[in-house]
């Protein structure tokens, strides 16, 4: 079984924990295409559009730690993940979001229970309202408590923040 899942991200290691928790819950026969989506308002000036490159844009947004964290997850769940990519959504309307979902054949979205994204870029925006208003099936993962941990922002954060199953 193959499916595409959309996960909103602020390109922090904490948001990768959502990916990890989600992957943990999936049965072993699923093959996943993961889209890590970031909401970003982009400039509409002609000159910037002339030299627009998504690769470069992502390079600026994504930290080295985040990429390493993605690699760790890809290596861990090598047989579950078919693809994992980072993308930027810059539409303004719900219709644009629905279009994006349809074009990328997204089957479901996965959001953290405790969601407070920390954006480094001031033109970033929260994707949550779009996800909630769309017809996507939404899965909630993660824990409801946020403890201060020493390894914030390092790859190490990915390793221990497991869901406390009670």
């Amino acid at each position: 079984m193959e499916k595409t899942v959309l996960i909103p991200t602020d390109f922090s290691i904490a948001s990768l924990n959502i990916v990890k928790n989600y992957l943990n819950e999936q049965p072993s026969h699923v093959r996943l295409n993961i889209i890590l989506l970031h909401g970003l308002h982009q400039t509409d000036s002609i000159t910037s559009l002339l030299f627009y490159s998504k690769t470069r844009l992502l390079q600026e947004l994504v930290s080295k730690e985040f990429n390493e964290g993605c690699d760790v997850l890809k290596n861990k769940y090598a047989s579950k993940i078919r693809s994992m990519r980072k993308d930027v959504f810059s539409g303004f309307t719900q219709a644009a979001f629905n279009n994006y979902v349809e074009a990328n054949r997204v089957d479901e979205a996965c959001v953290p229970i405790l969601y407070n994204p920390q954006f480094n870029n001031k033109s970033s925006f929260d994707l949550m309202p779009y996800i909630k208003a769309s017809s996507l099936r939404v899965e909630c993962v993660g824990s409801g408590i946020d403890l201060p941990i020493p390894e914030k922002g390092k790859v190490a954060e990915l390793f221990f923040n497991r869901v406390q199953v009670s």
Binding site: E68, D71, V72, N75, K76, V155, F159
Partner: peptide
């Protein structure tokens, strides 16, 4: 003391986490 291992394509990570005095 939790010791965990992971690997990206460039690095092997060893992470040692304790709940000590800091």
């Amino acid at each position: 003391v939790n010791v965990s291992i992971g690997a990206s394509d460039q690095n092997v990570f060893v992470i040692v986490k304790d709940h000590g005095i800091g």
